Amino acid sequence: MPGRPRDAALAQETILRVARAHFVAHGLAGARIDVIAREAGYSKAMIYHYYGSKEALYVAVLEASYRDFVAPRRQVRVAEVGPVRALEAFIREGAASIRRDPSILSLLGIENLHEAAYLRRTGVAAALYPPLIAQLREIVEAGERQGVFRAGIDPVHLYVSLSSLIFHAVSNRFTLAVTLSADVPGAAFLDRQVEEAVAMVVGYCRNPPPAPAATPG
């Protein structure tokens, strides 16, 4: 029947959305297929028909979440804006992605507990991250060629560093709010944190200004 493909897509979309919330809240071990099925409005049999097992459903949630996290980022045109503005835009795009849906960090935490065993079963690492790192490499190499950035910057290490400056503030925002007595979850605080991250990363990459010439004594 003509309606079936659309119905199937809607069912899978609903199941993934509900399952994601349960995996975020309860982890892989704690999430229950019968509860997910009841809340999604579909039978357990239908979930197993589409996904086969709870682990396979978790893998599908993980893959969809990574795609939603990485894919919406806009491509930065280095040749048009220059390496400094391109690097600033790259950092802000990453920050915007994580702030759109901070629960991705809960999934990353769960997956790290499993030593990325389930992430290895997806295609997202090979599909999404090489282009992301290639873009950062393009920015770094353009900056080095123009003498704006210092030589020897590794884009993989740079990605880890710039991500940590933003991810930590988002993933630990509630505990940081208590320990620092600051409104870390608030938009104004996170706006400032993003700008701090931009300043630190760009400052690290920039070539130091030449030392002033010594004046004769």
Rank of each mutant, 00 (worst) to 15 (best):
112 N>L: 15
184 V>M: 04
213 A>C: 06
22 H>R: 10
8 A>Q: 14
55 E>L: 08
80 E>R: 10
204 Y>S: 07
19 A>C: 01
153 I>S: 02
123 G>P: 06
200 M>D: 07
191 D>F: 05
73 R>T: 01
23 F>P: 02
192 R>S: 11
195 E>H: 09
52 G>M: 08
82 G>N: 05
177 A>C: 02
117 A>Y: 06
140 V>K: 03
91 I>C: 00
131 P>T: 10
147 G>Q: 08
6 R>M: 11
145 R>G: 08
216 P>W: 15
93 E>R: 00
201 V>T: 08
116 A>F: 15
122 T>I: 09
97 S>N: 10
115 E>N: 14
139 I>K: 01
49 H>L: 09
99 R>M: 11
43 S>Y: 06
71 A>N: 11
143 G>I: 03
103 S>N: 09
15 I>F: 07
22 H>L: 05
136 L>K: 01
158 L>S: 04
12 Q>C: 05
118 Y>I: 02
200 M>K: 01
199 A>V: 04
61 V>A: 01
154 D>E: 09
176 L>V: 08
66 Y>C: 01
188 A>D: 09
110 I>F: 08
159 Y>H: 12
94 G>N: 01
38 R>W: 14
153 I>D: 03
166 I>C: 04
214 A>V: 14
191 D>G: 05
216 P>M: 15
91 I>V: 12
61 V>K: 03
25 A>R: 08
138 E>H: 11
120 R>K: 14
155 P>I: 13
58 Y>I: 01
45 A>Q: 09
99 R>D: 07
214 A>H: 11
171 S>L: 13
100 R>I: 01
56 A>Y: 06
45 A>E: 13
144 E>A: 07
205 C>H: 03
214 A>Y: 12
8 A>G: 10
148 V>H: 06
125 A>C: 05
20 R>I: 08
182 A>E: 15
140 V>F: 00
40 A>H: 10
106 S>D: 11
144 E>F: 09
